[in-house]
Simulated assay, not measured.
Amino acid sequence: MTPISYTIFTMVAIFLSVAFNYTTNLLTRFLSEQAYYDEKTKKLKAKDSKSIPSDFLQSAYDEDATYRKKGNKAESGYVLNLSETCSKENPFQLITDYTVEKNIKSDVELLKERLPIVKQNTECQEVYVDGGYYSEEVVQIVKVFFKRKRCGIPLYRLKRQEAYF
């Protein structure tokens, strides 16, 4: 075998070993999180779905995908959060911020993390959110963030157009 052939052979062997170990580890994780061994039948059995935490492996193809119920809807995968301009005076609207997170992160958590970044990168004067983003905790964070007795930017829930200061 030539030195180049030996090098290629070694690299392929290492790659296959790593790929096999990754697949084996993923399969082991999946089985340990989604199944249990029944001593009576000597077989693996699926765990009851209610006993599987949302951050356990949801997909053999994507080990970071998570599960949650939002309202009455079950969702698996990721959550995407977008911020955009929404002024009638603008000739067009722009996405000003985005983040992709595991699906177990709530809308309130996303807003708490991203609002300072949006404020730093834009000159936003108002924030409009749907009901999933609103909480008293968010209002307090906005007040502290803008160092005022009232929120530095009004926080509106879209469905009722109520202002929260």
Rank of each mutant, 00 (worst) to 15 (best):
residue 16 L to D: 11
residue 138 V to Q: 04
residue 114 R to A: 08
residue 27 L to Y: 10
residue 82 L to E: 09
residue 29 R to N: 10
residue 112 K to M: 11
residue 20 F to N: 01
residue 22 Y to P: 00
residue 96 T to S: 08
residue 162 E to K: 13
residue 134 Y to H: 08
residue 161 Q to S: 09
residue 78 Y to E: 09
residue 40 K to V: 05
residue 80 L to H: 09
residue 115 L to N: 05
residue 48 D to H: 08
residue 46 A to N: 04
residue 138 V to C: 06
residue 136 E to T: 06
residue 95 I to A: 11
residue 140 Q to R: 08
residue 62 D to A: 04
residue 106 S to K: 02
residue 61 Y to T: 03
residue 110 L to A: 12
residue 131 G to A: 14
residue 32 S to C: 09
residue 109 E to P: 01
residue 40 K to C: 04
residue 80 L to W: 14
residue 64 D to R: 05
residue 121 N to E: 13
residue 135 S to F: 12
residue 9 F to G: 08
residue 123 E to Q: 09
residue 75 E to P: 00
residue 128 Y to K: 01
residue 106 S to L: 01
residue 2 T to V: 05
residue 79 V to F: 14
residue 10 T to S: 15
residue 40 K to R: 02
residue 73 K to Y: 14
residue 2 T to F: 14
residue 55 D to C: 03
residue 133 Y to R: 00
residue 5 S to G: 13
residue 129 V to H: 09
residue 158 L to D: 12
residue 2 T to E: 15
residue 97 D to Y: 15
residue 100 V to E: 12
residue 34 Q to M: 06
residue 113 E to H: 08
residue 129 V to Y: 12
residue 44 L to G: 06
residue 93 Q to T: 07
residue 68 R to I: 04
residue 29 R to G: 12
residue 130 D to V: 05
residue 104 I to T: 15
residue 13 A to D: 09
residue 61 Y to I: 00
residue 3 P to F: 15
residue 148 R to H: 11
residue 60 A to C: 10
residue 52 I to M: 02
residue 132 G to A: 13
residue 104 I to Y: 08
residue 59 S to D: 09
residue 120 Q to Y: 10
residue 136 E to S: 13
residue 144 V to W: 06
residue 121 N to F: 08
residue 68 R to V: 03
residue 107 D to A: 09
residue 8 I to N: 10
residue 25 N to L: 06
residue 146 F to S: 07
residue 119 K to N: 12
residue 108 V to H: 04
residue 17 S to L: 11
residue 36 Y to E: 03
residue 77 G to V: 02
residue 82 L to W: 12
residue 143 K to H: 10
residue 15 F to Y: 13
residue 62 D to S: 03
residue 83 S to V: 03
residue 156 Y to Q: 03
residue 146 F to N: 06
residue 161 Q to C: 09
residue 135 S to C: 05
residue 134 Y to T: 00
residue 112 K to G: 05
residue 145 F to P: 00
residue 73 K to N: 11
residue 3 P to S: 13
residue 61 Y to F: 14
residue 36 Y to N: 00
residue 123 E to W: 07
residue 99 T to F: 04
residue 58 Q to R: 02
residue 77 G to H: 05
residue 22 Y to D: 13
residue 12 V to I: 14
residue 131 G to K: 03
residue 132 G to C: 05
residue 111 L to Q: 04
residue 32 S to A: 12
residue 91 P to I: 06
residue 61 Y to E: 11
residue 90 N to L: 06
residue 100 V to F: 13
residue 127 V to I: 10
residue 127 V to Q: 08
residue 2 T to S: 15
residue 28 T to Q: 09
residue 124 C to I: 05
residue 12 V to N: 10
residue 143 K to V: 04
residue 161 Q to M: 13
residue 93 Q to L: 15
residue 101 E to S: 07
residue 23 T to S: 14
residue 10 T to W: 14
residue 159 K to G: 06
residue 55 D to G: 01
residue 119 K to Q: 06
residue 86 C to L: 07
residue 75 E to Y: 15
residue 2 T to K: 10
residue 61 Y to M: 03
residue 10 T to I: 06
residue 105 K to V: 15
residue 65 A to Q: 03
residue 114 R to G: 10
residue 106 S to Q: 06
residue 74 A to H: 13
residue 66 T to D: 14
residue 33 E to Y: 01
residue 16 L to M: 05
residue 95 I to P: 07
residue 40 K to F: 09
residue 71 G to F: 14
residue 104 I to P: 03
residue 55 D to W: 11
residue 27 L to M: 11
residue 161 Q to F: 12
